[in-house]
């Protein structure tokens, strides 16, 4: 029986890998099949936001809710954009540099905030996010103030297809790194801590260290996403990184399913692509996003991942019943 259930688990896992491989191959051949540059553009955006949403998840699994996370995407974007534009540094240097810079800022904040309890940490992060946005707004010609600035050094000769593969590659690498992190010993401990402080105490884990580590990793990747996105767009403005932007990152995570690593990926695709499909509705199109949220809130509480899990569980129990029936015969 044990062997049987392990076999069944292996089977679902390999089914999961299968789906993953097919998805990556599909994403890989899309530029060959699609002529519409606009569609490629949207997908590039999705890839960057997937990185941002995954980075948010890395912090969320440690039991922290950084309500100012999008501002850190802004930090990455502005750091790289400004370094490239004003210091004439090559983007190949500024993008990773901006990611590291964001990580350093994130760690500084996490260390100063480590005394705060979960809710106050969330709020502190929110207010800090607003402060960051306002400081960028106050940056005069350096940051372009409220309207931001354009003319950020382009890459890949602005070829959409090159950008597509670059962003896809960056997304896959980031996802792989974050996956390794989440399922490493450290990641597992971190999840355990977030479930209960008692666990941390009884195992003697230094909670603060883990929380700071989570913020460091999350900040690095969100800075990376922001920087890459800035060079792709060529223009940035603070309004893309405000509180509501953070809330949308959270929505990507929650709609995809907060209990699953792949949740943020699926959530980003759902919440960006579906409303995009209805963009002809113009002013009314945000209703689609809201509609998706309500759909998930009222009908699919576990997010997309919860839906899949429920389906898998049902198939399994059905199979088990059949096995029992067969045995009974």
């Amino acid at each position: 029986m044990n062997a049987l259930s392990r076999f069944a688990a292996d089977k679902t896992r390999s089914a999961g890998y299968g789906i993953l491989v097919v998805a990556v191959i599909l994403l890989g051949v899309i530029p060959l099949l699609m002529e519409s540059l606009y569609s490629l553009h949207i997908l590039v955006m999705v890839f960057f936001y997937v990185i941002a949403a995954l980075s948010l998840r890395a912090i969320v699994i440690s039991g922290q809710f950084p309500l100012g996370h999008a501002a850190f995407m802004g930090v990455g974007a502005y750091a790289s954009g400004m370094a490239a534009k004003w210091l004439h540094l090559p983007p190949e240097l500024t993008i990773p540099g901006a990611a590291v810079f964001t990580m350093i800022i994130g760690v500084m904040v996490a260390v100063s905030f480590s005394r705060l309890r979960a809710l106050y940490y969330a709020m502190g992060s929110l207010f800090l996010g607003v402060a960051i946005i306002q400081i960028l707004n106050a940056g005069g010609t350096w940051t372009g103030g409220y309207s931001g600035f354009s003319g950020i050094t382009p890459m890949f000769g602005n070829s959409k297809v090159s950008w597509y593969y670059a962003a896809l590659g960056l997304m896959i690498l980031s996802a792989a790194a974050l996956y390794r992190f989440e399922f490493s010993r450290i990641g597992t401990n971190m999840k355990a801590i977030s479930q209960s402080h008692l666990v941390a105490e009884s195992v003697g884990i230094n909670e603060a260290k883990y929380r700071i580590l989570a913020v460091a990793i999350g900040s690095f990747f969100v800075g990376l996403a922001g920087a890459g996105y800035a060079h792709y767009m060529g223009t940035i403005a603070t309004s893309s990184y405000n509180f509501m932007a953070t809330m949308w990152l959270f929505m990507y995570v929650l709609v995809g399913g907060v209990n699953n690593f792949f949740g943020p990926i699926v959530g980003s695709f759902i919440l960006i692509l579906i409303p995009e499909y209805f963009r002809s509705l113009k002013t009314y199109s945000p209703f689609i996003s809201a509609g998706i949220l309500f759909l998930f809130v009222y009908l699919m509480p576990g997010g997309f991942a919860g839906l899949i899990q429920a389906a898998v569980a049902r198939v399994k129990s059905w199979r088990r019943e059949r096995a029992r029936d067969v045995a009974a015969d």
């Binding site: 959270f250 929650l254 945000p286 996003s289 949220l293």
Partner: peptide, 11 residues
């Protein structure tokens, strides 16, 4: 509750 709040806000 956060999701609903964002949804209502958008609507």
């Amino acid at each position: 509750i956060v999701m609903v709040g964002v949804g209502i806000n958008v609507v």
